[in-house]
Design a binder for these strands. Structure first.
Length: 429
DNA sequence: ACGTATGATTGAGG
DNA sequence: CCTCAATCATACGT
């Protein structure tokens, strides 16, 4: 019941929004229309007065309209009708006051720009109305003066006319203020309700986040610092996108969604996992290659014939080719990955269909790099090394086995618990 | 136009 | 506060 009502309200607001957006707020046509109306009306009053008729009562004093006060207050609060500081500083202040100070500044700059636009329109229109009011007043005064030659016109009558005109114009002003208020409210709802303007993160940002996720698949709970760093990295790398700074809470949201969705069906994400594992593997491979070359200088017995992997080779589209590539890479089909067996490791490789396994023995002298490479092999994630990541945030739901997900996975996860020392690959240094 | 992907929100539970 | 789970609302690809 409550929910449906909520939805109805939402719909109503949406409809209102649509209406207002589709209706030009301060169209010249509207202004002109009002002016024409007023002219006609004044002429009518004039005429009726000339005939000695009275088409309206003479209530002179307006009590201060509470609604107008409200509108004024709101406009003042929003920084629309405030003192005119250059560049809409009041609007900026309003924007800063309404949200986090410097959190998503780019969004707010957009908001500010729109607000200043509204503000400008408001002020120009207000000025125009003022001017029109004055013009009308003088015009009517002239008319009355002319009429005073033919008939006596009391000062009270003039005063009354002026009062009428001013009232009329103030009602128009109220219209303007109302429209402005509506526009501001809509602007707020559009810009401050993040849900309404959901934007996908940039490719690079998701890449970074995915990279972190898949390289910390065993415990994808970034600490606060890690989140901050990720957020920073994402917003830095997003140089070309139309400003989407990613906040820490967005990173949290992202990881929350990712965990849930990854867990929901791992199969769907295997390809992605492979991809990102490959990516980290490539970077690690470069490091390994460098290490190999270094070691080659020391020990010339190490062959280095075929390990000239380029990044572009991983830009293949089909998962199969990626997988074969990886397989080749690790089975050493090019006859290259023969490092001195300083640290023995048995890595099992699960191909994408999950049936055929290839076991290859890889020895590496760089433990951390091997740990990175491990993710290529265990794309379904080593949930088993829960004791990794000593600094990572430990969630409440982390069970004693160390896995962040319950044992509901259907896939045959190959656990490779290589030891207590699980160095998390940290590509960011 | 429709289905999927995805960021954000909500509410429960700790 | 956090996370998870469900859900919403929009983006985006077809």
């Amino acid at each position: 019941m409550i929910l449906s009502q909520k939805r109805r309200e939402k719909k109503a607001v949406e409809n209102l929004w649509r209406f207002v957006v589709l209706t030009p707020l301060w169209s010249p046509g509207r202004c002109f229309g009002w002016c024409v109306l007023i002219t006609l009306w004044i002429k009518m009053v004039e005429y009726s007065d000339g005939l000695g008729l009275s088409i309206r009562g003479a209530q002179e004093e307006d009590p201060p309209d509470p609604q107008l006060m409200r509108l004024d207050n709101m406009l003042l609060a929003e920084g629309v009708s405030g003192p005119e500081k250059g560049g809409g500083a009041a609007a900026a202040a309003a924007a800063a006051a309404s949200g986090g100070a410097s959190d998503n500044s780019i969004e707010h700059s957009d908001y500010r720009a729109k607000l200043t636009q509204i503000r400008q329109i408001y002020h120009t229109e207000l000025e125009k109305y003022e001017q029109a009011c004055n013009e009308f007043t003088t015009h009517v005064m002239n008319l009355l003066r002319e009429q005073s030659r033919t008939r006596p016109i009391s000062p009270k009558e003039i005063e009354r006319m002026v009062g009428i005109i001013h009232r009329k114009f103030s009602s128009i002003q109220m219209q303007l203020k109302q429209s402005t208020c509506e526009a501001v409210m809509i602007l707020r709802s559009r810009f401050l309700d993040a849900r309404r303007k959901r934007r996908n993160f940039s490719k690079q940002a998701t890449e970074i986040l995915n990279e972190y996720f898949y390289s910390h698949l065993s415990n994808p709970y970034p600490s606060e610092e890690a989140k901050e760093e990720l957020a920073k990295k994402c917003s830095i790398t997003v140089s070309q996108g139309v400003g989407s700074t990613i906040t820490v809470s967005q990173v949290s949201n992202w990881f929350g969604n990712k965990r849930i969705r990854y867990k929901k069906n791992i199969g769907k994400f295997q390809e992605e996992a492979n991809l990102y594992a490959a990516k980290t593997a490539v970077t690690a491979a470069h490091a390994v290659a460098a290490a190999v070359q270094n070691s080659q200088a020391n020990s010339p017995t190490t062959p280095n014939s075929g390990f000239q992997m380029k990044d572009e080779e991983f830009q293949l589209d089909s998962a199969e080719s990626k997988n074969t590539l990886l397989t080749n890479m690790f089975t050493g089909s090019s006859g290259s990955f023969n490092l001195p067996n300083s640290g023995d490791m048995f890595l099992s490789m699960q191909s994408l269909n999950g049936d055929s396994y290839q076991v290859t023995q890889v020895g590496a002298n760089v433990q951390s790099q091997v740990d990175t490479l491990r993710h290529v092999i265990s794309q379904t994630a080593g949930y088993s090394d829960g004791l990794g990541g000593s600094t990572t945030y430990s969630p409440h739901s982390l069970n004693t086995n160390g896995g962040w997900q319950n044992a509901t996975t259907t896939s045959s996860v190959i656990s490779l618990n290589e030891g207590p020392r699980s160095v998390h690959s940290d590509t960011s240094n």
